[in-house]
Write a protein that binds this DNA or RNA. Structure first.
Length: 810
RNA sequence: GCUGGUGUGGCGGAACUGGCAUACGCGCCGGUCUCAAAAACCGGUUCUCGCAAGGGAUUGUGGGUUCGAUUCCCACCACCAGCACCA
């Protein structure tokens, strides 16, 4: 007599061992079934381990992968470690433990916790970005970019985090603070490695159109790339001695060129020292120096416009007018040409500036009918604009650009907000940049055969703070012969940012042990990724970089597609009600985490998996409820009992009610799963158990089998155990996903709500397909409904067969 | 300011294509079992008037379309997220 109790602890261990032994999750390169690649964003293996919020992001793709497996796909569902990064390094500084030791320990702990979830990861394909066999290829990609001129070194004013003592990418600066540590970012001039992502701006933008991604993420990327169409216009600036200097600006509003009443240079603009007149030099230089010292965000947060007049003037090419040249920090060197023409009548920022300094405001666009605001930034009709007067501003923009081009003083141009990617980090725990600096040959790539350039052992992990990484102190590592001339040369000591390894890891899972190529021969068939699941916090950074790497690898023939992630799904976060009554993100730093280990012990892995799905719509944030898991646990116990109570004593055939419940369940679960409405999948199964429970008849074998297969992606151990106990050989995951027949999902009688003047007044149970006349007949025989008619005849009868009857009376 | 999202019971949420609002779960109330408690199981639970039968109200607010609106349209409010002097 088998044990009737639901002993989840024993069951879960039994099947986890079985699946591992049977290698159920290993994806076979040669499998003839159609492939399906379902990818989770791989984690940074932090020391603090997993909380129930992390679980959520892994349970959904796992349930989806198991569903695809049951649908007959050859599923690849891998996992790995994004293990370079500052926490391990900071820990090394504090404790002296080598980051590698630390990282390995954290990975082991993280993996143990992940295994507790019973995801169907193919662990034979596990990768680790800090493994030299892996980062060899990260370095290889860098070298290919270097050879194509896409990686270059430049002295740049960069974002510098004084706490992390390293430069940051623009993408890593959030509201003027360091994304990692929250310190205020300052500006600093350093020679930096850059990746020319801007060369791909147009393709990164265009590629978004066809992706099955959340619109929100696509919009964020579009905004980040920030394409604007406009014109480059050459003014002529005059210095104090009458010398002429071309001064180029970018504008999206060439139609307002006649309204330019002054010009503004960014404080860093090279013409500032050239143009400033001697009497103003001290003042202007002080202003420019102060502006440059402040970080960019300080400039953008200032409410009051500031600036200085250089004393110089420029000539407007359309009318020969001389207008004053100012310096102001509201113009940024990093966008366009670092100089603008100012049209205060039609630009809010120029208007604010002109108001502060009393500069001329000249209207050249007549606003739309009836509007009188100044500044008017919309379209309108051009006025006081020479030959262009009377044109609509949209046409005028093109006309002016053409006019400028004909005279060689301008042309139409597209600008992007996107800037090149600052790729240098002055830290230890990252991929060494594989370049050698030779005094004779310059920047020489490390020969590919010598990759990887391994991280050397160091004694001190502290960043120097001087702008060099700790690697600079290892003389015998730094000093190498030049690969080209053999003379003495020095290694590059900067390392790559954490984003480097994650920009291409999804490729490597497909052929993780390939030694002679980034992508092995079996790899291509798995790609691209069919479903990518992860948090929306990577909407810009990681996803843009990964797309950039993919475009590049496509162009050099490594892969044969341009977009790596066909479909993207963003999970919501798990939040928790704080004592203040506010909802906060669940995180270690907030101290509000819920530990899954305890819940696995008390309720079981399957209950927790189910609750992670049931907690709310997957794309939205969800508030964790400590008692919520009790509900799904009770459901599992009821379902368990329902199956085993009739085990071996099945009904010959299902009653019509049970049959219809079964087909309805398959339909609901399948449709809701396809729509990613996982919370409602769980409730559909609960409703089913409630329904068959109240029917109080023994189920037939097929109904029970169907239920077990349907629940298996969500509660795999539970399903596998019941599958075995009901007399099947494992595994339930080798079964096919059941079908439903619509003929069974509709019942023979229907209950029709009866409304009178739109208000619910009763219900009628009739045969499906009953005619209007018969229904009206039934209404007349029903006194409870008739009394609401007040003895009157309906003025209008609306009858939707099998749906509703609405009677309109006056 | 711009862009995107969200507003439904005490709480998380459900509602296919315009057709019974509040499924499912939590919590709460009552019951069974127990010396007792927990667990488990059974029943109830939008608000409101009413002893009841029954009535009325209700999907952020105000309008509109419709026999009928959580769903479509217009205007507004609140909250959340991202971006923000990008010329």
């Amino acid at each position: 007599m088998p044990d009737a109790a639901y002993r989840f602890g024993e069951i879960e261990k039994k099947w986890r061992d079985y699946w591992a032994r049977e290698r159920l999750y290993e994806a076979d390169d040669g499998d003839p079934r159609p492939k399906y690649y379902c990818l989770d964003m791989f984690p940074y293996p932090s020391g603090s381990g997993l909380h129930v919020g992390h679980w959520r992001s892994y349970v959904l793709p796992d349930a989806w992968s198991r569903y695809m497996l049951l649908k007959g796909y050859n599923v690849l569902h891998p996992m790995g470690w994004d293990a370079f990064g500052l926490p391990a390094e900071n820990d090394a500084i504090k404790t002296g433990t080598h980051p590698e030791v630390n990282t390995r320990r954290n990975i082991a702990n993280f993996k143990r916790q992940l295994v507790d979830m019973s995801p169907m990861y193919d662990w034979t394909r596990e990768i680790d970005t800090t493994d030299p066999a892996y980062y060899r290829w990260t370095q290889w990609i860098f070298l290919q970019m270097f050879k194509k001129g896409l990686a270059y070194r430049q002295l740049m004013p960069i974002n510098w985090c004084p706490s992390c003592k390293t430069g940051l990418a623009n993408e890593e600066v959030v509201g003027g603070t360091c994304e990692r540590c929250g310190a205020t970012v300052t500006a600093r001039d350093l020679k930096q490695w850059m990746l020319r992502i801007t060369a791909y701006a147009e393709r990164l933008l265009a590629g978004l159109d066809d992706l099955d991604w959340p619109e929100k993420v696509k919009t964020m990327q579009r905004n980040w790339i920030g394409r604007s169409e406009g014109a480059r216009v050459r003014f002529t600036a005059l210095d104090a001695r009458g010398g002429e200097h071309p001064l180029e600006i970018f504008t999206t509003r060439a139609d307002t060129l006649f309204g330019a009443t002054y010009m503004v240079l960014a404080p860093e603009h090279p013409l500032v020292p050239v143009l400033t007149t001697p009497d103003r030099r001290t003042d202007v230089e002080a202003y420019a120096a102060a502006a440059r010292a402040g970080a960019e965000h300080e400039r953008t947060e200032a409410t009051q416009k500031t600036g200085r007049f250089t004393g110089a003037f420029a000539v407007n090419p359309v009318n020969g007018e001389k207008i004053p040249i100012w310096v102001a920090d509201y113009v940024l060197m990093g966008y366009g040409t670092g100089a603008i023409m100012a049209v205060p009548a039609h630009d809010v920022r120029d208007y604010d500036f002109a108001t502060v300094f009393g500069l001329e405001i000249r209207e050249v666009i007549a606003p739309a009918e009836g509007r009188t605001e100044i500044p008017w930034v919309g379209n309108g009709t051009m006025t006081a604009s020479g030959a262009f007067t009377g044109m609509r501003s949209t046409d005028g923009r093109r006309a002016v650009a053409r006019w400028l081009e004909e005279r060689g003083v301008g042309r139409a141009e597209v600008q992007y907000r996107l800037r090149d990617w600052i790729f240098s980090r002055q830290r230890y725990w990252g991929e060494p940049i594989p370049i050698i600096h030779c005094p004779r040959c310059g920047e020489v790539p490390v020969p590919e055969a010598e990759l990887p350039v391994r991280l050397p052992a160091v004694e001190r992990y502290e960043p120097t703070g001087t702008g060099s990484s700790p690697l600079a102190a290892i003389e015998d590592w730094v000093r190498v012969p030049c690969p080209e001339c053999g003379g003495s040369a020095r290694r590059e000591t900067d390392t790559m940012p954490q984003w480097a390894g994650s920009s291409w890891y999804f490729l490597r899972y497909t052929s993780p042990r390939s030694d002679d190529a980034l992508l092995g021969p079996a790899g291509r068939a798995w790609l691209p990724v069919d479903m990518y699941v992860g948090g929306v916090e990577h909407a810009i950074l990681h996803l843009l970089y990964a797309r950039f790497f993919s475009l590049f690898l496509h162009d050099i023939g490594v892969i044969d597609f341009e977009e790596p992630f066909t479909r993207l799904f963003n999970q919501g976060m798990i939040t928790r009600m704080a004592s203040t009554g506010r909802v906060e993100k669940m995180s270690k730093s907030k101290g509000n985490t819920v530990n899954p280990d305890a819940l696995v012990a008390s309720h079981g892995c399957d209950s927790l998996r189910l609750y992670e799905l049931f907690v709310g719509p997957p794309e939205m944030d969800a508030v964790w409820n400590d008692d919520g898991i009790d509900g799904v646990h009770r459901f599992l116990k009821r379902a368990w009992k329902w199956v085993l109570d009739s085990n071996g004593r099945w009904a010959e055939a299902p009653s019509p009610v049970v049959a219809s419940q079964r087909h309805l369940l398959v339909k609901k679960v399948t449709e809701r799963l396809e729509a990613f409405r996982l919370n409602t999948v769980v409730s559909a199964m609960m409703e089913f158990i409630n329904a068959v429970h109240s029917i109080e008849e023994r189920p037939d074998r097929e109904t029970v089998e169907t239920f077990i297969i349907l629940i298996s992606p969500f509660a795999p151990h539970f399903a596998e155990e019941l599958w075995e106990r009901t007399g099947h050989a494992p595994s339930v995951f080798r079964q096919g996903w059941p079908d439903w027949d619509d003929a069974h999902t509709v019942s023979e009688t229907v209950t029709i709500p009866v409304q009178i003047n739109g208000r619910m007044r009763g219900r009628l149970t009739v045969d499906a397909g009953t005619s209007e006349e018969s229904v009206m007949e039934a209404v007349r025989r029903d006194p409870a409904i008739c009394r609401h008619l007040d003895g009157k005849e309906p003025r209008k009868v609306v009858y939707v067969q099998d749906k509703i009857l609405n009677l309109v009376v006056n």
